[in-house]
Amino acid sequence: MNDVWILAEYHKGMIKEVSYELLAWGRSLADSLGSSLCAVLLSPKIETEKVNSLFEYGADVVYHCTDSSFEFLNCATFSCALESLVRERSPHILLGAATTTGRSVLPYLAVKVSSGLTADCTSLTIEKETNLLLQTRPAIGGNIMATIKTPEHRPQMATVRPKSKKPLKREIGRKGRLESIPFDPLWKDERMKVLEEYIHEGNESSIEEAKRVVSGGKGLKKKENFELISRIASCLGAAVGASREAVDRGWIGYSHQVGLSGKTISPKLYMAVGISGAVQHLAGIKTAEYIVSINNDPTSPIIQISDLAIVGDLFTVCGEIEKEFERRKVFS
């Protein structure tokens, strides 16, 4: 069997968007191989239309295992279920998202099924002569792109960076084969239990999953000024990021830090405000589609990797950006 599998992600009654991105990657690989694309969904009971959305975004088969223990991630439980499926059906390729879920479960599973795993890929293709998966990922702070193969072991496993591909256009009514997988109580791991979950408000959305990110750095001078970043972000419908300096000064939490010791992200737009662009910071944004910077120093390294750079006082410039958004609101 040459099947391509993706691990869909579930949260609070919903299938996460990143699952559809994985389907887009999987679809192109399955088409190159002439094989089927299968989505594995481990979740509590969920509405049928949600499951069907996986077909509409490109899956040919959905393996759905339902149990309340899939409400929150438990690596041992998830890995047991996946191991059993993988052993029974021997997929050629298994992809997960490079998220807190995928980056935890897939390594756990890779050991159980004795196969290799490549982290945080930004490109996946099939090598024509061998039908092997070519997995490309940035390494050494984004300075090199390494292409990796898993020649002997199966499945070939990779986690894929969120936002590295757009979901396919949803094809309403597209059908596939749904297979329900019975839950084996032996899979259940009781050693770890989630007691509570706190969900961020909308504007605190995670920077890895955001299409647009506005980040602030040292140039903002003090904590109160960081508000400016949140306001611009909210105008743009963007998530809020920060440089290490801003995080270390306590202006915003670590979950917002972009760079080598923070998050590596690939948004469509990255806007850096008052960030000079230390190598470590740049390492986190090299795969962003467009980079815009606002900074008063024309020699800042950030300008080298910007698509558009405004050299000026960030407070004046951001004030004007806010005014422009106001104007547009009035006229739209």
Partner: peptide, 17 residues
């Protein structure tokens, strides 16, 4: 199980306006 088959310099520099 995994083998590195190719290393390339990443595209980093952009021509900023």
């Amino acid at each position: 199980p995994t083998k590195v088959v190719k290393i390339e310099q990443a595209r980093v520099k952009r021509d900023a306006l």
